[in-house]
Design a protein around this nucleic acid. Structure first.
Length: 681
DNA sequence: TTAGGGTTAG
């Protein structure tokens, strides 16, 4: 809380200060405050803190333009006010405002303070604002500001993070004197740009090293995949600090050794800080141990360590992978309760979580409320809409994105094109695929060709799909052949299908799915000898099929069911309930596909009866355990079989329940006997 | 001046 100096104390200045310190203001409130400040003689007395508080309030209220018009309305604003305003504009991620303010400051003859200059460099580096940083650089040169070692090092850091290694080198070699900090910055530049060997050489030649130098090398060797050298840097460092421990723990996670990482975390003991916890949580997410990520978060809370935005991002990522909507909602709630700052990274994590948990409306709400949206946020919403079967809405967002001046990238087009596949929008796919190169100058990668092959194939345009594979500039990978095979299956082109799957087996002999593809194909043709031949081949080669797993969240607990699994404590009740389900299905004229029971082994073990397919057990458990009207949300690791798909449609209407199933690749929203995929998957 | 965070086709 700001209080004006005694001499300036008046009810008005106090009330102004209070208003200004309050959270967000509307632009009308800002205007009226501005008028009050101008007309009440404040300016003559210059209560600098009040002026600064008002400016801060402009940024907090997302009206940066008020800050600059306010500054312009003050005769000779003090240099400190200029500087703090410029720094605020950086912190609020409002670069256009920053540029205007910075130019205004220079025109006003105010030299930026050293704090401001380093803040600018740091921000440019942090936000990879390459052009901005460069224009800043030239402006600074123009006004004749002298670069000392610290500023040059900042500049070096900026160019390093912007990925501009040549400029980093130029700055570094042009430095009249170098200290440890400068050498460290150059090591960091080299390491970040993949020139790990060179970084190592520089480190070896350094006349002086500090803790930071050793710590940098831990990460540097980790990038080389050389964990032994990372560990050596850790051990040799004479000033081991918390950062050293955190760096080595992270290195083990990055090289997929969570067990050693955990061991070090335990050994670290009281030296742990919040970053150590965040490293553990994000590390488990990286190693796909989502349950451990969540339990580590619970331990973090028990240890009374305050979680940060970074913690939340990792947690949300775990929820997204698990499809744990209730947990994700809890995290969102926690963020609001603890007033954590939802920046573009955290916002993106929320959007992604909601999309991957099948709650698109919540994702859209987060998206709308974001102050700053970067390419990640746009991509996540576009990918998410497509994945949930809303191809047209994805296009709407693409249009909005370009209208807002955000340039789409390769990921955007993957999202769009894959979304079109899920909605059968062939014409749009063609249009955007050509727009990609013609309008946006993005070279299509294998993933884009893969999307197109999928889109064309699924629409029955198999010939065109094959032609595209033959004419594309790179060799098709297993994914491309795999999607073409699915299309052959859907459109019953067994001849082409057999050719495709043989290609697949050659490229990817370890992938169990490919063998399953082929034996399914033979089964559909009643070529049983070939079926058993391939099963034998699978056993010989030691290729194991992945069992189907489905999970459902009830009362904040994740229940996982594996196909044919009878070990759940409530299995007997579930089984009785499945009988009832089967009875009701029969009443509605559904006959299970017997052929599928015996031969469709794509997703489940052959011998487990179809009624024990994991998604069916999970849905039955949901019907039993969740209150009426509550949507049943199931996450499955593989694709749903066609029989389960039609059963779930019937269940949604007979039991009047919405069911959302996330399978390996997309969402199915079942309601009133229909599925959002329109049986197109 | 060093440690921890986000989107990608079957």
């Amino acid at each position: 809380m700001y209080f004006a100096p005694e001499s300036l104390r008046s009810p008005l200045s106090d009330s102004l200060a209070i208003t200004v310190q309050n959270s967000t203001l509307t632009s009308r409130q800002l205007r009226s405050l501005h008028a009050q400040i101008l007309t009440n003689g404040f300016l003559r007395c210059r209560p600098a803190p009040l002026l600064a508080a008002f400016i801060s309030s402009c940024f907090r209220s997302h009206c940066p333009h008020y800050a600059s018009s306010f500054l312009r309305s003050i005769p000779n604003p003090p240099p400190s006010l200029w500087n703090s305003t410029v720094r605020l504009s950086l912190r609020s991620e409002k670069f256009p405002a920053f540029l205007g303010l910075y130019g205004g400051m220079l025109r006003d003859g105010v030299k930026p303070s050293k704090t401001t200059l380093s803040a600018i460099l740091r921000s440019c580096a942090a936000y990879s604002a390459t052009r901005l940083g460069e224009s800043f650089h030239s402006q600074v040169v123009k006004v004749g500001f002298e670069f000392d070692v610290i500023l040059q090092t900042g500049l070096l850091d900026f160019y390093a993070k912007a990925g501009d290694l040549p400029s980093s080198r130029k700055v570094f070699s042009g430095m009249p004197e170098r200290d440890v900090v400068a050498d460290n910055a150059m090591i960091s530049a080299l390491s970040k740009n993949g020139c790990v060997e060179e970084a190592r050489k520089l480190f070896d030649e350094m006349p002086q090293r500090n803790a930071a130098s050793w710590n940098l090398m831990i990460t540097c060797y980790c990038k080389l995949g050389d964990i032994d050298s990372s560990r050596r840097m850790f051990s040799l460092n004479p000033d081991k600090d918390t950062i050293s421990w955190n760096a080595i723990i992270d290195a083990y996670f990055k090289l997929h050794d969570p067990a050693v990482a955990y061991e070090l975390f335990v050994r670290m003991g009281p030296a742990r800080n919040y970053v150590s916890w965040n490293t553990m949580i994000s590390g488990y997410v990286r190693c796909e141990e989502y349950g451990k990520a969540i339990s580590t978060f619970q331990e973090m809370q028990a240890a009374n360590v305050r979680p940060t935005e970074v913690t939340m991002v990792s947690l949300l990522s775990a929820c997204a992978h698990l499809g744990a909507l209730a947990m994700g909602e809890w995290v969102h709630n926690y963020i609001t309760r603890k007033r954590l700052k939802v920046d573009s990274v955290l916002g993106n994590a929320l959007i992604d979580m909601y999309c991957k948990c099948g709650n698109v409306e919540a994702a859209l709400e987060v998206f709308d409320q974001l102050e700053t949206r970067n390419i990640f946020c746009w991509n996540s919403i576009i990918v998410g809409l497509g994945m949930n079967g809303y191809g047209e809405r994805a296009v709407d967002f693409f249009t909005m994105m370009t209208e807002e001046g955000v340039k789409p990238d390769g990921v955007t087009f993957v999202g769009l094109l894959s979304g079109f596949t899920h909605s059968g929008m062939v014409a749009e796919g063609r249009r955007y695929f050509s727009q990609m190169t013609e309008t946006y100058r993005i070279e299509p990668g294998i993933e884009h060709y893969g999307c197109m092959v999928d889109l064309l194939g699924r629409a029955g345009l198999l010939k065109e799909a094959i032609e595209l594979i033959q004419t594309m500039p790179m060799k098709a990978n297993p994914q491309v052949w795999g999607s073409l095979f699915r299309s052959c299956q859907i459109h019953k082109d067994t001849e082409l299908g057999e050719k495709v799957v043989r290609q697949l087996l050659e490229l990817d002999p370890r992938d169990s799915g490919n063998y399953v593809f082929l034996s399914n194909l033979y089964a559909s043709l009643s070529r049983w000898d070939d079926v058993s031949c391939f099963r034998k081949l699978m056993i010989e080669k030691g290729v194991r099929k992945i069992p189907g797993r489905s999970s459902i969240e009830v009362d904040n607990v994740m229940h996982e069911f594996v196909a044919g699994d009878t070990t759940h404590p409530q299995f007997e009740q579930i089984n009785l309930f499945l009988d009832e389900v089967a009875r009701k299905l029969k009443e509605h004229g559904h006959e299970p596909d017997k052929a599928l029971v015996l031969h469709d082994i794509e997703d489940e073990e052959k011998d487990s009866a179809i009624r024990y397919h994991s998604e069916r057990i999970a849905v039955a458990f949901g019907l039993m355990s969740l209150p009426p009207g509550k949507t049943i949300r199931v996450v499955k690791n593989l694709r749903t079989c066609s029989d389960c798909h039609s059963v779930l449609k019937i269940i949604s209407s007979v039991f009047q329940r919405e069911i959302v199933v996330r399978d390996k690749k997309r969402f199915h929203h079942f309601k009133d006997g229909y599925c959002s995929c329109k049986d197109y998957w």
